Simulated assay, not measured.
Amino acid sequence: MTRSTFTPTVLRWTAALAAALSLSACAPLVLGTAVGGAFVATDRRTSGMQLEDQGIKLKAANRIRDALKDRGHVNVHAYNRMVLLTGEVPTEDDRAAAAVAAGQTENVSGVVNELMVGLNSTISSRSSDLLVATKVRATLVDARDVMSNAFDVVVERGDVYLMGMVTEREANRVAELVSTISGVRRVVKVFQIISEDELARKLPRPASPAASESSTQP
């Protein structure tokens, strides 16, 4: 009888890739904290901020679409009011116009413009980025010393952009982990750095023994 040689990590990559490939090929290649369900509880943003970021993302994308029309392929990402632009545009003027449009969106605190001037990425390139993104997420899930749901992961042309509210220690550790993954060309940290004390205040507090006992009383 032949035994399977798939490791848990490979199985996770395969499952994530299969799920992602069922989506439109034009969808942004983003794997990160979801708004809804159990993921909300581990997101370091408040639920209100998560909703605000979703609004910023949609509004900024609409502004950019109005400014550029059908020129280029622009992905908009938002985390804690910081906007990251990735993708491709045909000219430097378009690149600048996209950043201006995003920056004029209500409640945006800053724009990181990583748009490349050139031809739109190919389906093959986007598929390759999708595979890299699933590897990154699986690596973060497997790591024992980081909280994977604290990070949003964006992959574009082999460049991995990491977003989130993290400590300097977490930022350096995750960048180190990601840089060792095959297919990763560059790691770009788009983090809001917080102190260890701030992190401790954001983490869920464990229930006290007294509270646990009272909850089990009839």
Rank of each mutant, 00 (worst) to 15 (best):
W13G: 04
V160M: 05
A138F: 06
S179C: 12
A61K: 00
V141R: 14
W13F: 09
A19W: 02
P8W: 12
V132D: 08
D43P: 04
V160C: 08
T134P: 01
T122F: 07
A97R: 08
A18D: 15
G55M: 12
I193N: 01
A67C: 05
S22F: 10
E213P: 09
N149V: 11
T167C: 00
E114K: 08
T91N: 03
I123W: 05
R44F: 09
L58K: 11
I64K: 00
E168G: 00
V74D: 00
F191P: 03
A102M: 02
T216A: 14
T91K: 07
V188S: 05
R144Y: 10
A67P: 02
T167H: 01
N107Q: 13
D159A: 12
R169V: 12
H77C: 10
A15Y: 06
L31P: 00
L51V: 04
P209W: 00
R81K: 13
D53F: 01
S124N: 10
R157L: 08
S148A: 09
L11G: 03
G36W: 00
R137L: 05
V76R: 00
R137S: 07
Q104C: 12
V10E: 11
V136Y: 03
L199Q: 14
A60C: 11
E176N: 15
R157K: 13
V10G: 14
